[in-house]
């Protein structure tokens, strides 16, 4: 059997790992004994960026990744992280199934990443100590951001003070008042018990966290084309399974947050939020093939 070392960032009970159990099940049924899946959990093989490097260097054969972690190799993929462009999960899915999704797959392949399918981690929402519904209320407030120019620019444009903090120290920083807000997906919000320190989740859905299921190209090339087809089909089915699991997980997560006193609030004055994001579109434009491309996505059905 050929060993496939797979890296998952989270434990066996999370969609990030369950997708690989599904892929293994499908592949083992079609090609019994052909592969030995080693699904290494809890980020024991490193974070997203290190895993992507490992996939290029041959120590890891497959994993999931957010597209933002891949932007070091494929800067064009940042178009999927453009804020206030996608209206809902269906909008994201249609764009990925169209020309943009296919173009990006070719660009990933040129960088030694074989991408059979895209996944949706859910949308990022604003998390705060109070019900902040309009951008005007962000003025002077400190927000924890991931270390990314795109995120920093967005919150600056909206009037807040962005501060990069590692996720492990974020709870502490929110509790002690070093920062007042952050943004995250619903699953992670409940996973880190952040409702204890930022009880308000404002459903801004400002950035849809898109990801890829991907394999290492040097490994892929050692397989027969029939085997490639089986793996690709299994990965695609796994991706759909993942998206369904995330939706389930989000519902359960919000129920957990609500039981602990968390509150969900709708944002107001959407045009004001979008106006803040326009500047980021302009800055992002040159990297992703022009700001027109972003505008076009925003207008598509």
């Amino acid at each position: 059997a050929t060993t496939i070392t797979i890296s998952s960032l989270l434990g066996a009970d999370k969609p990030e790992t369950k997708i690989w159990f599904k892929v293994k099940e499908i592949v083992d049924a079609k090609l019994p004994g052909r592969f030995d899946f080693r699904i290494v959990q809890n980020a024991a093989l490193g974070g997203e960026k290190e895993v992507a490097e490992g996939i290029r260097l041959g120590s890891i054969q497959a994993s999931l990744s957010t597209v933002s972690a891949m932007s070091s190799w494929v800067p064009e993929s940042q178009i999927l992280d453009a804020p206030f462009v996608f209206r809902d999960a269906g909008h994201v899915r249609r764009v990925l199934e169209g020309q943009i999704g296919n173009e990006l797959k070719t660009k990933f392949a040129a960088q030694n990443f074989i991408v059979p399918g895209y996944i949706n981690y859910g949308a990022r929402h604003l998390l705060a100590k109070e019900a902040i519904t309009k951008p005007a209320q962000l003025a002077g407030k400190r927000i924890r951001v991931i270390q990314s120019p795109l995120h920093t620019e967005l919150w600056k444009a909206l009037g807040a003070n962005p501060t990069p903090i590692p996720i492990t120290e974020t709870y502490n920083a929110l509790q002690t008042g070093v920062v007042d807000m952050m943004d995250l997906t619903k699953s992670a919000y409940a996973g880190f018990k952040l409702y204890e320190v930022v009880p308000y989740l404002i459903e801004t859905a400002h950035i849809w966290a898109t990801g890829v299921v991907y394999f290492s190209a040097p490994f892929w090339k050692t397989l027969k084309s029939s085997e490639q087809e089986v793996l690709a089909a299994a990965a695609l089915e796994g991706a759909h399974h993942f998206d369904a699991l995330i939706v389930e997980d989000e519902t359960a997560s919000m129920a957990k947050a609500a039981a602990a006193g968390g509150k969900t609030v709708q944002p107001e004055d959407r045009p004001a939020w979008e106006a803040g994001a326009r500047g980021v579109w302009a800055a992002l434009g040159p990297k992703v093939g022009g700001v027109d491309k972003i505008e076009a996505i925003a207008k598509t059905a």
Binding site: E53, R56, L57, W73, S148, P149
Partner: peptide, 16 residues
Amino acid sequence: VVGAIGGTSTVLGLPE
């Protein structure tokens, strides 16, 4: 690694 890693640090703009 120099030959194979590729990529550019997004924040520094320098090759990895």
